[in-house]
Design a binder for these strands. Structure first.
Length: 632
DNA sequence: CACTGTCCTG
DNA sequence: CAGGACAGTG
């Protein structure tokens, strides 16, 4: 759930850092949580502005504020994930001889700080909350960053406008604080990253993904005090891989003056804090999930929502981009996400939302397949196979319903998905739709799931994980043509070689007819015709070459070579009883070609056109059965 | 100009 | 089977 959110930031952060690395001014423009770590890191290098992270946390308890450590940890933890930029061999960000021992000391110091603060230890400013105390307390090794920098950041990032009155009140009480870095989260997403952060701060919350990529693997315990150096942080600009660790590590150097407290007290306090943070994190993550739900419910709105995505929850905007063909490894912000893929980022969350037991899924969406079949052209021996395809039109009903609820704008958006950039999309659609099945380079997605969901072929082929699976399910359900559609089209070809768009819409009523879909269907039939005419011409030339006396001598029977070729192409499984009429039409076509060839008309570049004209008049009505089901 | 169909190519 | 170029049509 929220893990993905935090992971998102974690993955992203290194990228955001990149440009900053060499340009300290860039700090001013950063609007998400990253700069916090940067600031902390940088500041800590000189001295550390710990405690600053607290003052503005208006929603936090006094206890929280009293101790900068947890907050600090949280903040830094934002970058504790498996940054793609980090190599497994990343060197520690701090001195190599900073061992876990130091970490324990830091922990201890933090707890002590909590105790001290809650006990109402002295402060130079009586009405000041813990943050200031912390500042005072850590005054030795830490300093506030130059006011100029903070003010600059505040100004440029527009953070000030986001301050709550309480924040401001607190701010006013702290002359040293020009701006609280954490406030920036308010302008960058609504969900305080520290909350996501906190989530992942709990070892239990760590996803397998994070574990595999845990660059802090040196310490299996996921101790956040592990120290790593981002290889991209040159010149001592250290970005903790376990970023929080890095920053915190330095920040939390215990002071010699730290009073000793009993471990029991510390534990109790820590437990309380933990409890509080946990419950808060859970509720926040639930909120974030619900915030992103509308997206899933109204797929066509994607384009419309795109604009706001940038200012929305990061993982949400991320979804948009992924869906819109953002090249793999490119973040919604156009940055390369080195190493990790965005798909990975979303994997857990989406899997949680979508995955259900195959059967339940199938039933839920598609329902029992009801085939109003008459015998007609369908041999009973194949009835089972035909019925087995759960992609009845019923299956699409939910989608159609959803579509119907869309307003014009959304319809337009959906249409747009197939127009301007549509070519790309269409390509993906049909191209992979046919080949995807065979192309095993596509990924392991529960086939039962996809089939049960009546997911378009392209989706099946493209699915490179639960992420794209979810995307596609909601986005493409009604704009993709499936193999079943293709098969149906081929069988329809036995009746109509030149279907009108009305016929297409009638018999493919379960797909959202965009221009893209329409032309794809038209293209299909065009291809069918192409093959058909090629076979006819080939056969006619062969007849001419064989010295067939007259056209009447040419017949097309079910045993003929010509018919076999055609049947193999349009009815590969031979599970469809080809209508007699088709044999007649084929015969007529063959004779037309024979006559033309034998008369030497083929010297005319457009000699086939008259034939086409004849053939297009031979179309017959497509049986009603084709409206009802997929002959797959 | 948009759409459709054919032809060629991959 | 799809994409692209091209031509014909309304």
């Amino acid at each position: 759930m929220y893990t993905s959110s935090s992971t998102y930031l974690e993955r992203r952060s290194p990228e955001r850092l990149q440009p900053l690395k060499h340009d300290s001014c860039a700090l001013c423009t950063i609007t998400d949580g990253l700069d916090i770590a940067i600031l902390l890191n940088k500041d800590e290098k000189r001295t550390s502005p710990l405690g600053s992270t607290y003052t503005m946390g208006s929603s936090r308890t006094e206890l929280d504020r009293a101790d900068p450590a947890p907050q600090d940890r949280d903040t830094l933890h934002l970058f504790s994930g498996p940054p793609p930029l980090l190599s497994p061999t990343a060197t520690p960000c701090g001195p190599k001889d900073w061992p876990l021992r130091t970490a324990r000391q830091s922990k201890r110091a933090r707890v002590e700080s909590i105790i001290r603060d809650t006990a109402g230890s002295s402060s130079q400013e009586p009405d000041i909350d813990g943050a200031t105390e912390d500042v005072q307390e850590d005054k030795g090794p830490r300093e506030w960053p130059p006011d100029g920098i903070q003010a600059q950041r505040a100004g440029r990032s527009g953070v000030v406008g986001c301050w709550t009155s309480e924040d401001l009140a607190i701010k006013n009480r702290h002359q040293n604080m020009k701006c609280h870095p954490l406030l920036k989260f308010k302008s960058s997403g609504g969900l305080p990253p520290e909350d996501w952060e906190r989530d992942s701060d709990q070892p239990k919350e760590e996803t397998p993904l994070e574990e595999t990529h845990s660059f802090g693997s040196d310490s299996p315990s996921k101790d956040h005090y592990d120290i790593f150096t981002d290889p991209h942080c040159g010149d001592g600009f250290e970005i903790p891989s376990n970023r929080k660790a890095c920053g915190r590590k330095k920040a939390r150097v215990p002071t010699a003056s730290s009073p000793q407290r009993t471990p029991d007290m510390a534990n109790a306090l820590m437990a309380n804090i933990l409890k509080y943070e946990l419950s808060r994190a859970v509720s926040m993550s639930i909120d974030s999930i619900f915030k992103s739900m509308p997206l899933l419910e109204h797929p066509p709105a994607v384009v419309v929502m795109e604009r706001s995505a940038a200012t929305d929850l990061p993982h949400r905007s991320h979804l948009h981009r992924s869906r819109q063909g953002t090249p793999p490894g490119t973040s919604p912000y156009g940055e390369k996400v080195c190493g990790s893929t965005l798909a990975e980022v979303q994997t857990e969350a989406l899997a949680l939302v979508v995955q259900r037991p195959p059967q339940a899924r199938s039933n839920a969406l598609c329902g029992p397949h009801q085939r109003p079949h008459g015998k007609q052209e369908f041999p009973s021996s194949h009835r089972t196979e035909l019925r087995s395809e759960p992609q009845g039109s019923d299956a699409m009903d939910p989608v159609r319903h959803a579509k119907n609820t869309c307003d014009g704008l959304k319809q337009e958006a959906l249409s747009a998905a197939c127009t301007p950039g549509s070519k790309v999309r269409c390509k993906v659609n049909s191209r992979s739709s046919v080949r995807g099945a065979q192309s095993s380079r596509h990924f392991a997605v529960d086939p039962g799931f996809l089939g049960g969901l009546c997911v378009p072929l392209d989706v099946k082929a493209r699915s490179d994980g639960p992420q794209s699976m979810l995307m596609s399910n909601f986005f493409s359900l009604n704009d993709g043509l499936t193999t079943s559609h293709l098969k149906k089209a081929k069988l329809m070809f036995f009746y109509t070689r030149y279907p009108s768009s009305l016929v297409l819409k009638t018999f493919f009523h379960d797909v959202q007819f965009t221009r893209c879909i329409t032309s794809q269907l038209i293209k299909w039939f065009s291809n069918f015709r192409e093959f058909y005419y090629i076979q006819m011409e080939k056969q006619a030339r062969q007849a001419v070459a064989e010295g067939v006396a007259h056209a009447g001598a040419l017949t097309v029977g079910r045993e003929s070579e010509l018919f076999r070729a055609l049947n193999m192409h349009y009815n590969k499984a031979s599970d469809f009883q080809v209508p007699e009429r088709f044999l007649e039409v084929a015969e007529i076509t063959l004779r037309e070609f024979y006559v033309a060839v034998s008369l030497g008309k083929d010297s005319d570049p457009s000699w086939k056109k008259p034939i086409y004209k004849v053939i297009c008049k031979l179309d017959s009505d497509v049986p009603e059965e084709f409206k009802a089901h997929y002959p797959d």
